[in-house]
Write a protein that binds this DNA or RNA. Structure first.
Lengths: 317, 317
DNA sequence: ATAATTTACGTAAATACTTACATAATATAT
DNA sequence: ATATATTATGTAAGTATTTACGTAAATTAT
């Protein structure tokens, strides 16, 4: 409990940042209202850019301010209604609008200048009292997140954790059923179980193990959820085949760990390459193979199956 | 221009804080989605509180999380729809609802625990790279603003600036018309110009100046916008009277500066007190008088006017 | 030169809240 | 004991933005 409470603190960062920002924006609004200035804080960034650059298009404003373009359209619309902005079609590019501040817009912007200065001063004062320069800090966090977002950082950790939670172990006769079932699942979903499949799946010992290959299984949260075979083709080549991960356990690094087991097995036996035969519609599998360095090889072998397949290869030397 | 650009930087603080927070919240959402967890980040604070405290009412949750109570109602509604929360009427207080996490709610909350930890770790990592502890910083700013908000800080500066921009000067015959007009404005708006008023307004020299009093005027942006008289009652008492500030210039510290001029005048002449006669519906004026230390005195004098009035007094010793 | 892609803008709807207001139940003051 | 104030909740509507999607014009590729 104690532990969790502490965690909430860190997790609440985003929420509290938002509140802090809303606080400041509301105070600005209240100031304008109190001083009877007909001006919304959200107009500021756009007014400012138009003062500096004379005219701009919706898109330019969006990029300059960081608002999405529909947001800019809506803010600009408001400003047009308040006669602060005038709009016309661009001449050289008929898609674009040319937006300029009206005389009234310029006047109001200049008239709020003293208040802006006061707000500025207040923020500096707040910085001093708080003991931090908030702007520097924001910039620093923006840069840190630009390098690697919270999402990217966290997903790496999650994958690592999942990867570590998968236990891979070798074939023994008692797991024979799993080999059939886990492979039937995806074969039935995407294609059909062909005779060639059935021959291997039903006789893993004679077809794979006895010929110098191996079959791996993956256990995740006490359930056997995946399998993959290494078939010895010759002294220099192994085939990775019959990779199957049950649907509800997908996306948990199980396939990756199984493929790595096969590669490791082949490598330990002095193989030069691992090849595999797969099909275009097995997108997740192909992505996995590619991420581990497998490359498409045209005309390597004719297809073993009725289903249309192609071959990939990973060089081990 | 340069100058203004620099200012925008400070002013954009709130906007950028908001974006930073949205960034983080969106990343969290994306994480839950990617990991196929049926959970919204906004549920977290409430789930957490209910895990810690077993049950709570809408109001308690609002206070604990910082959301407004309608926000809590809406989030809770969502969670009820997702069967994460169960609700019942409170027994001892029929206004209250008793909200508890359902079994499913508890399970889901516990199941996201590892991801929460990963997010936590990521935030710590971000802190380290950015070189700041964001949570400390937020807290520091929250405290600074709690002591004195951006609004309060800024409004003080604005008032000071306005106050300094008002120029107060003394009566001379050429300003006679202003004395009549500025006072007629408010008299006509709130009451009517009575004979007693007219006598003083038309003869400021004989009625006020020659008897040892004074009339002050205020100039703001090159216009005469306010006036106020100090009438000598006897050697120990002055009456503050005929305070008028034209409507469009109100709220700019003009009245305050005029009243201070009258007080200063009386003080310089060795007066013991300044009194004034005002009316209940002149709310802004009364607020001003009170803020400067004037106190209500019952039965001081009978009313000089047809309109219902009362007296206030400021002791100078 | 034509097809395909990208860019610029627009619109509708969704999101995550807030404000403002209403009402019933409870607590407090006279 | 009764009026008054406060509290807890609810509801409707507003706000400031985003996402998602569509279309026309311009650019690039073939």
């Amino acid at each position: 409990m104690e532990n969790r409470l502490k965690e909430l603190r860190e997790l609440a960062v985003s929420h509290r940042l938002k509140r802090l920002s809303e606080n400041l924006i509301n105070d600005m609004k209240r100031l304008y209202k109190e001083l009877k200035i007909d001006y919304e804080p959200r107009w500021f960034a756009i007014s400012h850019f138009l003062i500096e650059n004379k005219s701009a298009s919706i898109n330019e404003l969006s990029k300059a301010t960081g608002y999405t373009h529909p947001a800019v359209i809506q803010i600009v619309e408001q400003m047009i209604k308040n006669k602060l902005i005038e709009t016309s079609k661009s001449i050289n590019d008929k898609r674009k609008r040319k937006l300029v501040l009206s005389l009234k817009g310029t006047e109001i912007f200049n008239s709020i200048h003293p208040i802006i200065s006061d707000i500025e001063e207040s923020i500096k004062e707040i910085n001093k009292e708080a003991g931090y320069d908030i702007l520097n800090i924001i910039e620093s966090f923006e840069n840190t997140l630009k390098e690697k977002s919270l999402y990217e950082r966290t997903i790496l950790k999650v994958k690592k954790r999942q990867f570590d939670a998968v236990e891979v172990f070798r074939y023994s006769p008692s797991y024979k059923e799993y080999f059939i079932n886990l492979n039937s699942e995806w074969l039935q979903k995407y294609f059909e179980v062909e005779k060639v499949d059935l021959k291997i799946l039903s006789n893993p010992e004679t077809e794979i193990i006895d010929k110098g290959g191996e079959i791996f299984f993956a256990r995740y949260e006490n359930e056997i959820v995946g399998t993959c075979a290494a078939i010895k083709l010759d002294n220099e080549n192994f085939e990775l085949a019959k990779l199957g991960v049950t649907e509800k356990a997908q996306g948990k690094q199980i396939g990756r760990k199984l493929v790595l087991a096969v590669i490791g097995f082949a490598y330990a036996r002095g193989a030069k390459a691992v090849v595999l035969e797969t099909a275009k519609n097995l997108i997740k599998a192909i992505n996995l193979y590619e991420s581990l360095g497998f490359k498409y090889i045209p005309d390597f072998h004719k297809s073993t199956y009725k289903r249309p397949t192609f071959w990939m290869k990973l060089d081990l030397r």
